[in-house]
Structures are given as C-alpha cells and as structure tokens.
Design a protein around this nucleic acid. Structure first.
Length: 596
DNA sequence: GTAGCGCGCGCC
DNA sequence: AAAGGGCGCGCGCTAC
C-alpha cells in the first residue's frame, strides 16, 4: 500500500491512497500527525510518499514513530530528471518538473534543524515545505506560496505520478526502482542517524586531547605543546616573528630559510631536508586537531553523550552522502576512541574491504578481476595473479586506474593492470572519454553525472576555433582531462554508493526484525531517543562503513545481519556475477578497537 | 563587520 | 612515495 502525504490548508496534513482515489481518506492536524502515522504504520506498513524526508521524518522520530518505507520525491527527482536512462522519455513527452522541486542534487534537502523563516525567505522550497509556521494564526489559503504549509497534497500526488511514468518508460525500470527505493531508505536512515546520535564519551575524548595537545588552554591561548613547537620552528627558521598559521607568512619564512617550496603542504615539506620541518609538521598536525576536533568541537557537537551530525543523503553528485556541520565524515582516527557503547550495549563496526575495485569488477563483468578479489584481500589477489610484485603496488595501481593517474609510480603501473584486467580498464577509460567530450556517464542503477558548466564549454569551443592559440588548446585539453577524471571516478564511486545504500537498507530492515523478536526483561535501555529504546540501530555511516549500536545480547545476530546484508547488496546489483564483498567486522565496546 | 576565496588537511 | 576522484571545515586574507 502507498500513502501520499501532503498539505491541505493551514496546519493540516492530508493522506491519500492513490490506489483508491485522489481524494484524501483522512486529514489531520499537524500535531496529531505522528499518532496517525504510528497507527497506519502498524496496521498497513505502507510506503509513505512525501516531498522531502528531511522535513517530515524528524518530527515523527521525535515522537518515537519509525516508518519502514518511503518514497522521497525530492531525492527521486534529482535522480530521474538527470538520468540518461530517462533522457528519451523526458525529451519526447511533457514531463515538466514542478517549481517546488529544488534544481539539483546540491540543493536536495533542507537543514534538519529549524531555520528561522527570515533567513530562508528567499527559498521557495523552504516556504512550501515550512510547517513551522503552522502554529501561526491561520491565513487565507488562497494567498501566495508563503502561506502554503507544505507542498499541497495534490501537487505531491501529481509529482509521484510523473516520477512513476518516467521510471516505467525508462531504459531500465528495474534498476531505477531499486535505486529510488535505496535512496529513499537512505533518507530515512539519515534522519534516524541524527535522531539516535553516535554514542560519544566526553572523558575519553578529553584524555586524547590532553595527551596530544596538553592541558586545555585558557581562552584565546594555544595549548602549551603547540607554543613550544612554534617557538622551536621560529628559532630553526631564523624567523622570530613568523605566524605559523598564516600560509603567506610561513611560505616567505621557509623560502628565506633556504627551503624552496611552492606551498606549505605537508607532502611538499617532507620532500626537503631541514631541521625546522619535523617540528613544523608536528605543529600543523596539532593545529588541525585543535581547530577541528578539540574542546570547542566537543562543546558544540556532543550533547548528552551523543554526537548528532546532520547527514545529507544524496548530498554529492556521485550519490555519496554529505554532512552539514560537525565534520562527521572526517572524524580523525585518533579521536574515534571516544565512540563508546552504552553500558550493556555493544558496537558492531563493519566496513566493506576494497569496495570500489570490487564494484568495478562487477560493473565491467571482469571475471579475472573478480577472481583476484575472491577471499579476503583484493590487493594480495592481484599480486597472486602475478600482475604486480607487491601489495602496495597493487593498491596504487588500482587507485591510479580508478582516479586516472598518469604520472608517478601509479601511472607507470596502470598499464600492467590494463593488460591483466582489460574489461575493467576499458570501462573506466570509456567513462573518462565520455567526460572529456562533455557527455555524462551513468552508474549501474541510473544516477548520471552532471554536465560540465558553461565555462568548461567555452574553453573547449574556443580551442576549436581556427584562431585558437597553442595555449588555448593546451588549456582545453587539460580541462577536458580534468573532467574525464571526474567521470572516470564517478561511475565507480557512484555505483559503490549504490551498493552501500542497498547494504544499509537491507541491514535496517533486518535490525527491525531483530528488535521485534523481543528483548529480555530487565535489559538496560539505551539513552538514545525513544524511537530506538532497546533496539539495535545504525549510529554511523561513512561511505563504506557502518556502526550499529545494539544491546549486547543481540550483537551476534546484528553481526550476522550486517554480513547477510552485504551479500544481498552484491546480488541486488550484480546478480549472479561472482564478485564478493567481504567485510571487516568486529563487535566492540569502542570504535578504536575495530581498526585491527 | 562580513562575504567569498584559497589553502591545507581530515576522511573515504 | 606521489599528486589522480569525492567531500566539509577552519583559518587567514582580501575586498567591500
């Protein structure tokens, strides 16, 4: 069953069963919405069709209501309206996107926290979806869009119908259906991750900071260890006043000291011999920790023992997620020890080993490459096949093939890989060639790359004019290759993101059944939000890695569910093709213990 | 005072 | 060791 959700008049939500009628079977005040969803979910387990999960679902979760399935129209439109699988039908028939949809993936979704209406007044999407004015005095329903509370249910219905028509008439309806279901499940998961939060032990984090940086400094001061390193660097450079935090200043001081660098980046510094370099690199390391993940980060982001970043499913062009605030996708390894399970709970930590090369093998149907990945370690498999001599060589060669390396050791090794795995190499080369000519490329399930912008096109067309200079042509070639590297990587990274979404979506539903099998009386409740009391739930997601927080008695079942879901994701994407997706999986108390 | 940008670096 | 894809964030700096 499907239930379409939309607005109907100020502060009221309408529910439509499109199989029966376009007339709502129920309308409900916003403050009763959660109870109505709870009851319908229990009775019918429908797929909820709504404009934007990021606007609807957090308020349900806050009331302890979870839903099993949804269709997120904003995310689906971002896929369908750009996919090469729908190009023909979009060109041939009238399928105009409604105005309330945002223009592209970058704008998909709004912040999960409530934005003051004043600062969002310029955004038609925000106005249309803004339920937070529901408590304001009722206004004329016929007034302008600012008075519409949420996308009207009629518009939601119409958009859903438009999207279904695109899927049905597309080149690969089955692939797109799977992608939209996975993307929508991702939207639910993103909201749930925020609601649940990642268990974060402030004391452990503070001990890490103290051991690396020294005691917390007074406001406006630097930690003692950084001050000491800075003094050492200034002395060794013979630049007593240099500000190490200023790139310009530091670059000048380095050159005056006879170190001929073009930048102050770590990898370039390390190429030079000078006594100041070691303490300078150490200073930069600490400086990064201080500004990104130290005491002020803790104060801002960890509340009641939980880190709650805002996840943005579908937030990047390739379909990987983004986050907004807190840097959740960049947590340095050395502070991960602060991720600690609640008493009586455990963390099940899993990441997909060498996900992208395995995805490439599957995408290209490259039997030899899939064979190298059979068993545990993909890179050793490549060495075993005699393609290169060492595991490190295998790694740089593979990364070079997927990222488009042309120089260095990586660039030199790529041809050997191409001889051993011609199908895989041909696939990424073809993707690069498409990008170089300004075309878009598409993932296995149907997400297509954006087209290069006007400036890129202008550069290319300038170079094709008769009066173009050699410099124009060089520039155009270089820009073309840049875009080719993007599309080369896009197909692999994007398809890997699809695998990860399928993995998580499958895991999410398995976790729900584990929870439903019952919890022994007296088990300790988590401090998580009420939607996750006593049930295993996802608390972290990072491209190819997940963490589940679970009552200890369920940990083994959760681990099995994680592994089963990975197997299932591989089958969903690649059918019977024999590519394996092994996991590094651990049941631990602390995230830090999962690295082994 | 703030907006925008380049840099550098954390993660995958 | 080398410099090839995707991101977000904090900083210093410049321009307004």
């Amino acid at each position: 069953m499907q239930i379409v959700v939309g607005a109907m008049g100020p502060g009221r939500v309408a529910l439509v069963d499109p199989a029966v009628s376009s007339v709502p079977f129920e309308t409900v005040a916003l403050h009763d919405f959660g109870d109505v969803v709870r009851a319908l979910e229990a009775a019918k387990r429908p797929r909820w069709i709504w404009a934007d999960t990021r606007r609807w679902y957090p308020r349900l979760l806050a009331e302890g209501v979870r839903v099993e399935r949804c269709h997120d129209l904003v995310l689906a439109s971002a896929i369908l309206d750009h996919s090469t699988m729908t190009t023909a039908i979009r060109a041939g028939a009238a399928h105009p996107r409604p105005e309330w949809l945002p223009l592209g993936p970058a704008e998909a979704g709004q912040p999960m926290t409530v934005v003051p209406a004043a600062s969002a007044a310029h955004s038609p999407l925000f106005d249309l979806l803004d339920f937070d004015e529901a408590d304001a005095p009722a206004q004329e329903p016929t007034a302008g869009p600012r008075d519409v509370l949420g996308v009207p249910v009629d518009a939601v219905l119409a958009e859903h119908a438009r999207q279904l028509a695109l899927v049905v008439a597309s080149e690969r309806p089955g692939a797109l259906r799977l992608l939209l279901a996975a993307e929508s499940a991702g939207a639910l998961i993103g909201a749930e991750l925020h609601a649940a939060g990642l268990p974060w032990h402030r004391g452990v984090h503070e001990r890490v900071l103290e051991s690396e940086l020294g005691p917390k400094p007074a406001p406006g001061r630097k930690p003692a260890r950084m001050e000491a390193l800075a003094a050492e660097v200034r002395t060794l450079l013979g630049a007593p006043a240099v500000n190490l935090d200023s790139q310009v200043d530091l670059l000048k001081a380095l050159r005056s000291a006879g170190i001929p660098v073009e930048s102050t980046s770590r990898w370039e510094l390390r190429e030079h011999e000078h006594p100041a370099i070691e303490p300078l690199v150490a200073y930069k390391k600490l400086s990064r920790l201080l500004s990104a993940n130290a005491w002020s980060w803790l104060d801002e982001w960890v509340v009641d023992g939980r880190f709650r970043p805002d996840y943005v499913p579908g937030g990047t062009a390739t379909g990987r997620w983004a986050t907004s605030g807190g840097g959740a996708l960049q947590l340095p390894k050395n502070v991960r020890s602060a991720v600690v399970a609640d008493p009586g709970w455990a963390l099940v930590v899993a990441d997909a080993a060498q996900l992208e090369p395995r995805v490439l093998a599957g995408l290209a149907h490259d039997e030899a490459m899939a064979e190298a990945g059979r068993g545990r370690d993909f890179y050793s498999g490549i060495v075993g096949a005699g393609v290169v001599e060492t595991r490190d060589q295998a790694k740089v060669a593979i990364l070079g093939a997927m990222y488009g390396a042309t120089t260095g050791e990586s660039g030199r090794l790529v041809p050997r890989l191409a001889r051993a795995y011609p199908r895989a190499m041909a696939l990424v080369d073809r993707a690069a060639a498409e990008g170089e000519r300004g075309a878009s490329v598409t993932t296995l399930l149907g997400r297509s790359s954006p087209l290069p912008g006007a400036e890129w096109r202008a550069t290319q067309s300038l170079a094709s004019q008769p009066e173009a200079t050699a410099a124009d042509e060089r520039r155009a070639r270089s820009r073309a290759r840049d875009w080719g590297r993007f599309t080369r990587n896009f197909v692999v990274q994007g398809t890997a993101a699809e695998w990860a979404l399928c993995w998580m979506a499958g895991l999410r539903s398995r976790l729900a059944s584990i929870a439903a099998t019952g919890v022994e009386p007296g088990s300790i409740a988590s401090r998580s939000g009420s939607a996750f009391e006593r049930m295993p739930h996802l608390v972290y997601y990072l491209h190819d890695e997940i963490i589940v927080h679970t009552p200890v008695e369920h940990a083994d079942d959760v681990a099995a569910a994680v592994a089963d879901s990975a197997t299932e994701a591989g089958r969903l994407l690649f059918g019977g093709f024999p590519v394996e997706f092994p996991l590094d999986l651990a049941i631990v108390e602390s995230y830090a213990s999962a690295d082994a």
